[in-house]
Amino acid sequence: MATKSKSPSFTIPGLAKADGAKLAGILQERLTALSDLHLTLKHVHWNVVGPHFIAVHEMIDPHVDEVIAMTDETAERIATLGVSPKGTPGSIVETRTWDDYSLGRATTNEHLGALDEVYVNLIQDHRKVQETVAELDPVSEDMIIGQLRQLELFHWFVRAHLESSGGALSTAGADSETEAAIQAGDAADVTE
């Protein structure tokens, strides 16, 4: 019978078991966020509509593959630390600290506006984790930095659709995913 021990019986050489458990807990939060992002991106891929449908629809899938690779890398790092990674849908819902993605069928700009807010929060949290893990483990820090590089690049792709030629973002000042979607949709209506 499988045990549900939270305390690892081993961790990576040179790291105390308590630090390995702490690091695994921090990485588990990132695993949850990345798993949620993967599912959210597929949801957007299936539900985006409008004049720029094909561009956005096709832009998302390669990044989905990148995010899936990030989840796998993160889960394997947790296992390397001696802890069982949790990737079930129930564990994602149970442990996430944010609301579920709220848009269904919506225009490209509305989804991209909402994704802008999703990425702002995800990247901010990833950066906080990078600072924390830097003190514990350079290998995990390197992994997080590599993920940040990919996440920030895709965020730029999203924002390029929301940016005016003068550099203003249609989502500027939005403090929620829904508000960002509305602002981006309204801005698209004005320009089309």
Rank of each mutant, 00 (worst) to 15 (best):
G185Y: 03
A134G: 15
T32H: 11
T71D: 01
A174H: 01
D99G: 15
D125S: 15
T191H: 05
D142K: 15
G82C: 04
R159H: 06
A134L: 00
T11I: 07
I144P: 02
G166A: 13
S165L: 11
E135T: 07
Q183G: 04
K4C: 09
A184T: 10
T95D: 10
V64W: 00
T3I: 05
T171Y: 09
P138S: 11
S176N: 14
M1G: 09
G146H: 05
R105Y: 06
E29D: 14
Y119Q: 02
D142L: 14
I182F: 13
W98N: 13
T191C: 08
S7R: 05
A168E: 11
V190Y: 06
P8D: 00
G185I: 06
V133D: 01
L148V: 08
H126I: 05
D99K: 15
A181Q: 05
H126N: 11
E58A: 13
S7G: 00
V118E: 04
Q147E: 15
S5Q: 03
F157E: 05
V139F: 07
A134F: 07
M70H: 14
L27K: 01
H43C: 00
M1N: 00
I54V: 14
A134C: 02
I60W: 01
Q124D: 14
E58P: 10
L103Q: 04
M70G: 08
L34G: 07
D142I: 04
Y101C: 12
V158A: 02
L162N: 02
Y119D: 06
G50W: 02
L115I: 07
V139R: 09
V44Y: 01
W156Y: 09
A33N: 09
K128M: 14
H38R: 13
L31P: 06
A184E: 06
L15Q: 09
D186G: 10
S9I: 06
A180L: 09
I144E: 04
H63V: 14
V133L: 06
V120Q: 08
Q150H: 11
K22H: 06
R77Y: 03
I60G: 03
D116Y: 09
A188Y: 08
Q28C: 05
P85R: 00
D186S: 15
G173Q: 12
T108P: 09
F157M: 07
R159D: 10
T191Q: 09
D72V: 09
A168C: 08
D137Q: 02
H43M: 07
A18K: 03
D175C: 14
D142V: 11
E76L: 08
L81T: 02
R127N: 12
V93C: 06
T80A: 14
I78W: 00
K42L: 15
Q28P: 12
A24L: 03
Y119H: 13
L115W: 00
S102H: 10
N121E: 12
D99E: 15
P51L: 09
E192W: 10
A16K: 10
T80P: 01
I26N: 04
V133S: 03
D116S: 15
L41S: 03
E135V: 11
D100T: 14
F53H: 12
F53M: 11
S102P: 15
E94Y: 07
A24D: 01
E192T: 12
A134S: 12
P8C: 03
